[in-house]
Design a protein around this nucleic acid. Sequence first.
DNA 1: GATATTTCCGTTACCGTGCACGGAATTTTT
DNA 2: AAAAATTCCGTGCACGGTAACGGAAATATC
Lengths: 354, 354
Amino acid sequence: MTKFAIVEKITINDIARLTGLSKGTVDRVLHNRGEVSKKSYEKVMSVIREKGYEPNLYASLLARTSHRTIAILLPKPLPGSYWDLAISGVEKATEDERQFGIETALFTYDEFRADSFRDVCTRVLESKPSGVVIAPMFQYETQVFVQELGARQIPYVFVDTKLDSPDGHLAFFGIPSYKSGYLCADMLLQGDKAKEVLIVRIMRDKERQSDPTVLRRAGFQDYMRENNPGCTIRSLFINPTDAEATDEALSAFFEEFPKVRHIVMFNSRIHLIVPYLERYPIPGMRIIGFDNLEANIRALKNGTVSMLIAQHPEKQVQEAIRTLSEFLVFQRKPETPDNHMHMDLLTRYNVEDY
Amino acid sequence: MTKFAIVEKITINDIARLTGLSKGTVDRVLHNRGEVSKKSYEKVMSVIREKGYEPNLYASLLARTSHRTIAILLPKPLPGSYWDLAISGVEKATEDERQFGIETALFTYDEFRADSFRDVCTRVLESKPSGVVIAPMFQYETQVFVQELGARQIPYVFVDTKLDSPDGHLAFFGIPSYKSGYLCADMLLQGDKAKEVLIVRIMRDKERQSDPTVLRRAGFQDYMRENNPGCTIRSLFINPTDAEATDEALSAFFEEFPKVRHIVMFNSRIHLIVPYLERYPIPGMRIIGFDNLEANIRALKNGTVSMLIAQHPEKQVQEAIRTLSEFLVFQRKPETPDNHMHMDLLTRYNVEDY
DNA sequence: GATATTTCCGTTACCGTGCACGGAATTTTT
DNA sequence: AAAAATTCCGTGCACGGTAACGGAAATATC
């Protein structure tokens, strides 16, 4: 039998006794709030180092009256969309961290308008949060915001997209975009070769700069160049808000290129092309998309979509909040700041038990 | 901005004030330790119901001196084996739950000897644990053990394999074996047909009854019957402790059936056939195995193995311990007792970020 | 009705930390 | 050297719950 027992911990009273000081002084040292002579400070610190003091979390939380708030900045989600999944992660994490006196405040912005993001940033700063989670869509504006956070000593964590900042983020949670495109290509071809493949893309006039789908496409193309050089990669642009036009575009495409049997989309909207394909099924078609949206999963279950690569935004956000909470409560930093999360492969046969 | 705020909670002092009793009496009611008149009991209960009292966890844990121990029964792991992964989950969970005053005690037994399991069971009972996690390999012996646990009011959770017990388990964490075999077949064929496939099996004289590989094989065979009826399923038995004999067996097999291009193993030991296949590579071979053992992952990364279906025993155990801890500390039961966990598909391109 | 039992309940001392308050010790000023 | 200003430090209560202890109230015994 192996026992993983609990080691006896030292208390601030013990430290007070050992140093001949009072617990008030020990407390001042522990929290760096001054009013302590150098001599006393050193005495306390040496005992702490020697005995390895760890504060009692319960006593600390019990005694502390104030709650701390973590602000979360996400693109405003449409129902059932990618960011809607992230929100469910916020809710879950809020429950989990409540026990540590952590509250959350969700701020959403228009992911295609930089001014909307700027607005939200100032509102976040006004709310004086203890920590911030950011899904950054605008490089420059985020840089400015993050600099301000650094100046105010407010820790922040990135999700979805990383942004190297001078002051340094506490952590990042996302998936490696380039590699996900590479993986996508591998899963699409399954070791075979293809003559033609189709990438369905969404057109929009966008102010937004950091777009993971660009990197995914690059990874996809590199895989093709290396493993299937004879393949023609075709692109088709659709309008996400006009289902009829989408159907027509697809119809026209397949009239022109009837031999295409492989389709991918690098954003989370594979479900947009599903209605057409269900109405006019093409045997032997292999379709891969991204992310575990409800609509995507339905298409996966009924066989229209072959596979989904899920990055699980809900988990990313949850981890981000957990990390921030741990830092605020235990002042513990994550071992590795940059955490590339697992890309989960979903098929109709393993999606149910998720 | 959406706020997920913290609701104000009522304390036992509030209850004492509202009922005109003392907090000692309130405490007696809350813990059902008698010495309270019916009249007072009702007064307290009605206030609790009305105001929705929830105890303050920190205060409770701070005041409580005693620690509780969770016993964990697993097959004795060989280094780098399936059960070794589970152990890492035990270690992780122990860290996580330590903060709640939970200790763990690991008991291992010989998974092929029922008497070894019986021995361990009695030792577990002697240790008087507050809760038990069991990976059951022996149907009857487990039934007996579990009955005894029920009689002593000790909650227990199954991992890996479920066993319907009369008294009822608190929870179960595992993957659906039959479905994993079905999924495996789908991933092996990738929509194509095959003339022949090979199942490599391990022979052993076993006392053990509940073997998930049997169910996996059934799922695999059913998939084949439904989607690829013309396929011949061949079996090859190897000796896990004799690498040379394994190589010879494989060599003989491929001499007799040189056209086979699909191999699966339903246990976690796909790595056993890797050395042979690396020495005598066969182009176009597709190989699928189970579980994220170090050796398997190496073979996945260098391309010998095409895919692994991972059930992540470390997560199963971790969840099991967490559930038990939550029950002991918060007296909260899981929403659903039976939790089929996600079957994770690993390829060389998504295994790194795990 | 006095005494012995039993039932019931209030008091109190913790658990370990946070933090405000007031005062002692030390340094600066005059 | 005395007074004023700082610096430094100890005391004590609060946080919410646990549980032992002893005594008051209610009931039983003779």
